[in-house]
Design a protein around this nucleic acid. Structure first.
Length: 416
RNA sequence: GCGGCGGUAGCUCAGGGGUCAGAGCGCCUGACUGUGGCUCAGGAGGUCGAGGGUUCGAGACCCUUUCGCCGCCCCA
């Protein structure tokens, strides 16, 4: 084989495209039910956008970006996530007048240079929303509600949210210090590289999968006890709202997120069905991001949902998804008069009837086999006899029943 | 970036140094020649991921490389 899809990428073949369309349509419908408007941004951006937005200390920026120099000498990066570009567009086009609420949603590919694994690709797809201009628990609850409704709308049950609050800047700084101090004796015995990573982002230690660290961190200080009054109040209010909305959640003091821009509320939906890549979606509040990107101070909250992972869940749950569309009719041509056949096909397609034909004009047996495989409801036989009598032979493939239908009644018959 | 396991027909896989290039499914053709699904009979299709090496001889052994799967890191 000479060429194949690049490492970590996947083709979506016709037999699977239907379920992608179904999922995306479902997502769009959910968003529009909440009043969100779609935004489509370029697949690549100025590298600086992600350096500023995602944070230079994150793994994404540090080692996972698809960055290259274009012919004009610009540093370009394939977007590794959907939020920063959406916010860039929001700022660039002045979408949010002061005091205004802006609701955006997106469906986009995202690129990260990583070692592929189950549920982890170099090109994957995300859908997500951003709610800008509101700093309340109500806004947080709306985004979580939308997320859960989306999953439930796909037929997934047992969707539970893992919830935490990272607090405001001051309390987070205080907590970091407390955490580092607590972890110091443990880190001393860790490999250098690992230690550096933890010192750069101490919160990361909390959700590490390293067993000894997990164990050591069991008695680590709880961030929820470090929240300043406003954060605490908001976090409590959010929990009350989620209860009202019938959204099950668990408090996860160890839940932190890999992107620097989060502040306050963070959440995830996880599953145990995807091996090590257990996050179905991740989101939270990022009140500083708009400013970082050069906009006016604007509170915001959002979520990013992995499409491939959602589809894996749907399939694992054996949820029935739509199949590829089938033609209404398959025209079996048993004549050399291709012009007359073409006229009939044209008439049917003009009438919005989905018609498939065999362009190779094979034997009757072969064409019927194809008709059967196409999944068409009817086989419409046009041979010299039919052309002479101006009546088509129409066979309903499921039942095998056959009848003659006058050409001028064909459209009506096939539609019925 | 690190570690483990894999790559043989379109798909799922057997073969682990000497007629071993195979099976099932799929595909194509046909069964008194204008009627599918079942059955039966034929048939097409593979530089055994790629490159190098060992050997009289290599899908099979060794090295390199590439892609995939699984894990670490991290995340969707």
């Amino acid at each position: 084989m000479k060429f194949q899809a690049p490492k970590g990428t996947q083709d979506v073949l016709p037999s699977f495209a239907a379920e992608w369309n179904w999922l995306e349509t479902s997502f769009r419908n959910t968003c529009e039910r909440f009043g969100y408007g779609e935004i489509r941004t370029p697949v690549f951006e100025d590298t600086g956008l992600f350096l500023a937005g995602i944070g230079e200390g994150t793994d994404i920026v540090h080692k996972e970006m698809y960055t290259f120099t274009d012919r004009g000498g610009r540093s370009i990066t394939l977007k590794p996530e959907g939020t920063a570009p959406a916010i860039r567009a929001y700022v660039q086009h002045g979408l949010g007048a002061p005091g205004q609420i802006t609701r955006l949603y997106y469906v986009t590919p995202a690129y990260r240079y990583e070692r592929p694994q189950k549920g982890r690709l170099r090109e994957h797809h995300q859908c997500g929303v951003e709610l800008l201009g509101a700093s309340t628990a109500d806004a947080d609850a709306e985004v979580i509600d939308l997320t859960v409704r989306f999953y439930r709308g796909l037929g997934l049950t047992g969707i539970g949210v893992r919830l935490n609050s990272l607090g405001g800047e001051q309390c987070r700084a205080g907590y970091r210090k407390a955490l580092l101090k607590f972890a110091e004796p443990v880190l001393k015995n860790m490999p250098e590289e690992f230690r550096e990573r933890c010192e750069k982002n101490p919160l990361r230690m909390l959700d590490s999968k390293d067993e000894s660290l997990q164990k050591a961190m069991r008695d680590a200080p709880n961030i929820q006890e470090y929240l300043e009054p406003e954060s605490k109040e908001q976090f409590d209010a959010l929990q009350d709202l989620l209860k009202t909305l019938d959204i099950p959640f668990t408090l996860e003091p160890r839940l932190v997120r890999g992107l620097d821009y989060y502040t306050g509320t963070v959440f995830e939906v996880q599953t145990d069905m995807l091996g090590a890549q257990n996050a179905l979606c991740g989101g939270g509040r990022y009140d500083k991001l708009v400013e970082l990107i050069g906009g006016p101070p604007t509170p915001a909250v959002g979520v990013g949902i992995g499409i491939e992972r959602a589809l894996m869940m749907v399939n694992a749950a054996k949820i029935h998804t739509p199949e590829a569309p089938r033609p209404d009719a398959f025209l079996v041509a048993l004549t050399n008069n291709r012009i007359e056949v073409a006229k009939i096909v044209k008439t049917l397609r003009d009438a919005m009837i989905a018609v498939e034909t065999d362009p190779e004009a094979r034997s009757a047996k072969s064409q019927f086999r194809r008709a059967d495989k196409s999944g068409a409801k009817f086989a419409v036989v046009i041979g010299d006899d039919e052309l002479a009598s101006r009546h088509a032979t129409v066979k309903e493939l499921k039942t095998g029943s056959v009848l003659k239908v006058a050409f001028e009644l064909l459209v009506t018959h096939l539609k019925g």
